[in-house]
Design a protein around this nucleic acid. Sequence first.
DNA 1: TGGTTTATGTACTACTCAGTATATAAATTT
DNA 2: AAATTTATATACTGAGTAGTACATAAACCA
Lengths: 205, 205
Amino acid sequence: MSSQIRDQPKTGRGRPRGFDETAVLEGLTQTFWRKGFVDASLDDLSQATGAARASLYKIYGDKTDLLVAALEHYAAHFDSRVAAAIAGTDTADDALRSVMRASADRLTDPDAPPGCLRCRATLEMSKVDPRTDAAIARANAAFTRNMARLLAMNADLDMPDQDLADKAAFLTAIVNGMVISASAGADRATLHAIVDRAVDAVRAT
Amino acid sequence: MSSQIRDQPKTGRGRPRGFDETAVLEGLTQTFWRKGFVDASLDDLSQATGAARASLYKIYGDKTDLLVAALEHYAAHFDSRVAAAIAGTDTADDALRSVMRASADRLTDPDAPPGCLRCRATLEMSKVDPRTDAAIARANAAFTRNMARLLAMNADLDMPDQDLADKAAFLTAIVNGMVISASAGADRATLHAIVDRAVDAVRAT
DNA sequence: TGGTTTATGTACTACTCAGTATATAAATTT
DNA sequence: AAATTTATATACTGAGTAGTACATAAACCA
């Protein structure tokens, strides 16, 4: 499900590929992340991935398909971060806080690409192309599902589902908002305070 | 301070302008809001404003100056919304909630432009041009200042400033996040629940 | 009325970009 | 070794864009 690749060589025949498939996904993600869809040219993408321009077309399709692949790669990376946090901690609160603090840290890391590919695509690409819409919807649904998973680690079993959904939506909005606030210049301490207040808010009730 | 206009006719001499200045600002704002900076072409802007392409250049400068003017217009509109809420309600909580609920309502109004010009510009135009950076910084600072103003209406006078700043940053992140969540498909009820939880969180301490 | 000033409409320039076509390179297979 | 298959490099096309130049329109002033 993670691969949108069109053309899979049936055997080892023909000239071998001069690029690494994971490097291509990483390059697409980083480039779209840093530049956005419109500003990332195919030359940019070709250079960042190490794959020839024509190869990107042959393997993935058009530019929109490249963004879709990048979005799925980006969302999958967050999935594994959450899974690791759940596996590595004892209490739901620890896992939730650590994932959110890690996001805050990354958003204020001067070496990391600024912002968030999912948020940027959501804000600037919604209702433009049905293929991107679907990919954006999948990425956002996966994000909120991860928040719910972190919340439900030790949730009351008789907690109504609606409450869990509301809390997950609340935490999703907080992370989404920190992305913009960080781009607007909020520093790490401010974001940490936001995380703490948000976690307290969902634990209070 | 709100006007970045370069060329002000000294007298009534010369051919009169065929456009209304407020309509121009409104058209710029709506167009950048709906399409973003890169996708809004000068032809789009000229058509939306009713001002000739050459007139936009003569009066404002280049495309970046047009975005700056739109951002200031957009931020000024929010300023007046907040001022009206403060003038029209008795308690800080009412004013805060009503402003935030109004944002949630607008974000889920199918007839309004989706998203938020300030948020979109912040996410996709940061660190691109010093002029836009300055305008973005002004718009975001003004927004957080408005949140603080709503909070301070009946704040404890001995509340430490840091606490007020943290709460304002928290509420700013919430609104920023609702913008993305709304673009991702969150419905009005979900956003209202987020507003209520956020207001409760800043009132609890 | 004629001159001046400001706004508008049109055309043009220089450039960038997505997508394609074609020739060539590098592997396997027979 | 020759044929086949797949990947890459290069060049091109067609469309769109920001910004500018210039002629023209529409007001006011003397």
